[in-house]
Write a protein that binds this DNA or RNA. Sequence first.
DNA 1: AAAAATCACGAAAACCTTTTCTTAAATTAA
DNA 2: TTAATTTAAGAAAAGGTTTTCGTGATTTTT
Lengths: 343, 343
Amino acid sequence: MSNTNLKQLAAALGLSISSVSKALRDSYEISAETKKRVVEMANRMNYQPNPFASSLRRKKSATIGVVIPEIANNFFALAIDGIQMVAEQKGFHVLTYLTHENNTNEVSTVRHLLGGRVDGVLMSLCRDTQSVDHLTSLQESGIPLVFFDRVPEQMSCPTVTTDDYESGFRATEHLIQSGCKRIACLSLSHYLSISNKRMNGYMDALKKHGLLVENGLIVQCTNDNEYNLSLIKALLKGRKRPDGIFSTVEKLAISVYYVTQEMGLQIPKQLKIISFSNLRTASLLNPSLSTITQPAFEIGVEAAGLLFRMIEKKTFGNRIDKLELKSTLIERKSSERILINKK
Amino acid sequence: MSNTNLKQLAAALGLSISSVSKALRDSYEISAETKKRVVEMANRMNYQPNPFASSLRRKKSATIGVVIPEIANNFFALAIDGIQMVAEQKGFHVLTYLTHENNTNEVSTVRHLLGGRVDGVLMSLCRDTQSVDHLTSLQESGIPLVFFDRVPEQMSCPTVTTDDYESGFRATEHLIQSGCKRIACLSLSHYLSISNKRMNGYMDALKKHGLLVENGLIVQCTNDNEYNLSLIKALLKGRKRPDGIFSTVEKLAISVYYVTQEMGLQIPKQLKIISFSNLRTASLLNPSLSTITQPAFEIGVEAAGLLFRMIEKKTFGNRIDKLELKSTLIERKSSERILINKK
DNA sequence: AAAAATCACGAAAACCTTTTCTTAAATTAA
DNA sequence: TTAATTTAAGAAAAGGTTTTCGTGATTTTT
């Protein structure tokens, strides 16, 4: 609700609206001295162009949309941080939408975005998204679209991800080398490629080291935290308790800590664990948590960079960019080999 | 960049643009059957109204702006979560801006917002904001403005905060009752009222219990993490080391943990600590961290609620709402009394 | 049956910028 | 000195929606 508009500004200057507009946009049609006069008056009258009129006319919003499952999540908070940094640099605004891991929300958010409110979209899928119809329709509408981390497998689109398979493999191998024989895997969702890739890495590591892949040791978790806790409890109280856990996502590892604390189970003595995590306090936990840490901030930066390249040049679609960054495995106490009995 | 507009829709229906618009807005001027026809065709043609044209005409953006210091912060992430929930309920979009604790960014963000891009603003000040000129000008422009947590003291405006003074008092008293005699206070910023209120509570608790307020024990921290670490190190390595720390903000408590870990200082035996924090893993730290936990999500919900009341009724300004929620003190190991020597 | 009211819709202005197209004046070229 | 070009500015259309006002046709009132 800025009060002064071009009309008033023009009146105050004794110029036409069009000349003022051109002066402010630094058009060659306007003389240097007039430009100066206009800019000065604009500042004095505190003129702010109406963004809607401008967007309507230019068909550009200078806004990007970011669609993520949740914000109270260390990974996504860091990614947003990176995205915001790039957007600010480009003079763009950032509209954030949370799906709360609910596909219905994701679909309706995409429908909103179809309205043309944004010049581009960054997105990370929600755990229960199976059909990609809403995503392809967004893409087909001509709005540049880049996925990060949780990307769809069934469609051709630019993505920024991490080396999930390799990370899953290395994490599991690390547990094996620390002496684990029965390693469980806590999966985020069987629909998400990142979860499956991490799990495939896990399974291949088991196979490589001659360990059996047991279905009972692969726990498909849900979006209900309470229910996940009960799944984890069941896993750890079962007749054949695992001696290692590979958690594909931070939240589940934290749940494991709570359960072991409640059960009096000792990490790493009775149970070792390693998890994907961006927890800043991983090294301060009791015991410190071994993590595979994704470069979350950089993922945000790269995804935004990719998006802006698409927004700026119209020439997208010919080459589909797939960027893969590396995660780092940080060994800490929670997966430490116990050297009590000599062999 | 939705393709079909009202004009095309009208043509396809053999109606005028105005009738179609009215039908879609469910005007009483349009017959029920025509409305039905219009809605069906709109769906079939995948019509999405152009948000800029609509905003331009109605002088409403259905968007709120949220200005916060940082997003990779448990408190703010939770608050945003609450804000988003309310906004979504109201059918509003959320534009997020990060100041990175930098006043210059805050000022320029506010200038952008003055353009009328949003119907209301939720804000939490950055640590070095002293002058409130940019804030009053935003307020005077007629855009509803609500502050949460970090609120300005010098201006009259609606706010949502917590019982910071009392929480500071109780936290300090708790340390005293656990046996601390020399309690340090880690302050976020001497410009922010929340930091000062917490510190005042700290000082009054010391006085009540006959303890001296020592300037050397009040550490004004900065936005430079490395420098803060050195301040904390200096504090803990000084000739008269404190036996308790009251941290006004989570990040500083984490730094203390790192320093004590490095120095081999034992919490709570040699040093007790309590901190404002929304860390979900507080109870899993080594040792578990005593916290004053703010209802961050609720703060977001309440602040957004307040803002929407202002947006919906034009009648604001007569009564200034000041909401104060309660924080909860959770005692954990880090501030536990040590019962070694009988008295 | 005439007057009044209601109904269902259309025309057109308004919101504010941006941009294309004109145009008058000033400058350069012939 | 006239013709051609450049310069600096204005008029007006366009962008898509909403809303006010107007207008025939139908229904209700007296």
